[in-house]
Amino acid sequence: MPDALAFVHKFEPASDPTRLPILLLHGTGGDESDLLPLGRAIAPKAALLSPRGKVIENGMPRFFRRLREGVFDEEDVRRRANELADFVGEARKAYGLAKPVAVGFSNGANIAAAVLLLRPEALAGAILMRAMPPFRDPPKSELPGTPVLILSGRLDPIIPAEGAAQLATALTDSGAQVERETAPAGHGLTQEDLRLAAAFLDKL
């Protein structure tokens, strides 16, 4: 049954079934293997579910199309976010999983944010690393108490600081419990990001 799921993906079962599963969502150019070491580092006992984005841009997998750097094809974002949410539901049945926490980097963080706003029932929470708002006019959502951590890089040349702030506002306005942390880093991830992510997951 797992072979018939809608996304090419990798799954690693939990060694502690009381831990929430982790949905790993890679950045542009990554694949289903890209974030498995990160997932195991921040959630060593949790189940890991890691799909590969279906959109190809210059030979690199992504989760949705963009018109240019920083400008998203919002119609495609909506379609792909719903498709990903459906996949999560199918994978939960196939693998016997609880509702997962999304851990996304860059493009993966943006599609996770879109799923939170469009299909809030699909996720138990999210860690959004180097994220920006997926919609110019965020849809109204119902995320009462949903835990979200936004991790930004102070020196990030791709994601402006106001982008993370706007995303935090959109999620907070939908009822999510949002924490924001800014590391002394660029767009790439650091050990501080991993430490903050692991601490956040330990509280859930």
Score class of each variant (00 low, 15 high):
Phe11Ala: 07
Val8His: 11
Arg62Cys: 10
Asp137Arg: 11
His9Trp: 10
Leu194Asn: 06
Pro144Cys: 14
Ala94Ser: 15
Pro37Met: 03
Arg68Cys: 03
Met129His: 05
Leu151Thr: 01
Glu74Gly: 07
Leu67Asp: 05
Asp73Gln: 05
Ala113Arg: 10
Ala124Leu: 11
Pro61Asn: 13
Pro138Leu: 08
Arg19Thr: 08
Asp202Gly: 14
Val71Phe: 03
Leu201Arg: 07
Leu38Ala: 12
Leu123Pro: 02
Gly175Cys: 12
Ser174Ile: 06
Pro134Met: 06
Glu75Lys: 13
His9Val: 13
Arg119Phe: 00
Ala47Thr: 01
Arg62Phe: 02
Pro139Leu: 10
Gln177Phe: 12
Ser15Asn: 10
Pro44His: 11
Leu24His: 11
Glu74Asp: 10
Ile111Tyr: 04
Pro139Phe: 08
Pro51Cys: 13
Gly125Asn: 08
Asp137Trp: 00
Leu67Phe: 01
Leu167Gln: 02
His26Trp: 01
Gly59Ala: 04
Arg136Pro: 08
Ile42Lys: 00
Phe63Ser: 07
Val71Ser: 02
Phe87Thr: 02
Ala168Arg: 12
Arg79Val: 14
Thr182Lys: 07
Asp202Trp: 02
Ala98Asp: 15
Lys45Met: 11
Asn58Trp: 06
Leu128Pro: 09
Arg68Trp: 01
Pro134Lys: 03
Glu192Asn: 09
Ser174Glu: 04
